[in-house]
Computed example of a mutant assay.
Amino acid sequence: MTTTSRVALVTGGSGGIGRVTVERLVADGFAVAVHYAGNRAKADDTVAQIVAAGGEAVAVGGDVADEIAMTELFDTVEAEFGGIDVVVNTAGRMILGPVAEFDLDQFDAMMRTNVRGTFVVSQLAAKRVRAGGAIVNFSSTVVKLAMPTYAPYAATKGAVDAMTLILARELRGRDITVNVVAPGPTATPLFLDGKDDATVERLSKAAPLERLGEPADIAEAVAFLAGPARWVNGQVIYVNGGIA
């Protein structure tokens, strides 16, 4: 069992914002459980790099919407590191399309990962995270931008906002903060997939800082909530360069 003082679990930690968040938390001295859904090789690669650099990490897999799989995952992390202090939910899916034409099977699949998955992991985190810890869920700035074709995705993230802010109040007296990070346009495969160059260029100029966010920008906000931000609780933190 490790003697590391703080332990983090990052869902979707094998790629995109998740992987950079893992690396940022390791830099802050966390031992990290790197969750993956389908690509174990990427998670193993992340863990190998962390361990080679002297950090502590383990790869853990499973469907975030499967409560049995996630219970086993939490058990594994606790057995490996002795407890859990921070849970970060970056796992998610984004499928775009107009409401009138949107495929309901795709809508259900996105709801399963983004809403049920966040709920399942948050439920377990509420029971398992140690005093002084933090739960950080992921939403999106698109919830308040009202952009065409984003309605199904924004609906799932609006649900994340609601459940997270209520959970913060339900954990009264536990010394556990619960917040949401809501990125704006960020240069990740999830965001860039299916967008032509003109669309990416237009979105990159939307914020006053006139660039897309980088995963490191988002990870910095997560690290703040996971560490020193003990008086930030029950909030949606928009990390979007001022786009809204």
Results as ranks from 00 to 15, higher is better:
residue 218 I to C: 05
residue 232 V to T: 10
residue 216 A to G: 03
residue 188 T to D: 07
residue 94 M to A: 15
residue 42 K to D: 13
residue 32 V to A: 11
residue 193 D to L: 15
residue 133 G to I: 04
residue 175 D to R: 14
residue 134 A to W: 01
residue 221 A to S: 05
residue 145 L to Y: 00
residue 99 V to F: 11
residue 87 V to C: 04
residue 45 D to R: 08
residue 228 P to W: 03
residue 113 T to N: 09
residue 171 L to G: 00
residue 180 V to G: 11
residue 243 I to F: 04
residue 19 R to N: 06
residue 232 V to G: 00
residue 122 S to M: 15
residue 49 Q to T: 10
residue 46 T to A: 12
residue 229 A to G: 15
residue 198 A to S: 13
residue 113 T to I: 14
residue 133 G to N: 08
residue 67 E to H: 08
residue 115 V to K: 11
residue 203 L to M: 13
residue 95 I to M: 10
residue 79 A to M: 02
residue 67 E to A: 14
residue 98 P to H: 03
residue 19 R to I: 07
residue 138 F to Q: 11
residue 130 R to D: 10
residue 171 L to C: 11
residue 152 P to N: 13
residue 84 I to W: 00
residue 69 A to M: 02
residue 192 L to G: 00
residue 229 A to C: 13
residue 117 G to K: 09
residue 48 A to S: 08
residue 42 K to M: 15
residue 145 L to F: 05
residue 60 V to N: 05
residue 28 D to N: 04
residue 88 V to G: 00
residue 12 G to W: 09
residue 157 K to P: 05
residue 2 T to E: 14
residue 52 A to Q: 13
residue 182 A to F: 12
residue 15 G to V: 06
residue 176 I to H: 02
residue 226 A to D: 01
residue 194 G to L: 06
residue 206 A to T: 07
residue 21 T to M: 06
residue 183 P to T: 12
residue 113 T to S: 11
residue 12 G to S: 13
residue 237 I to A: 14
residue 54 G to T: 11
residue 153 Y to T: 00
residue 3 T to S: 15
residue 171 L to R: 12
residue 7 V to T: 09
residue 235 Q to K: 13
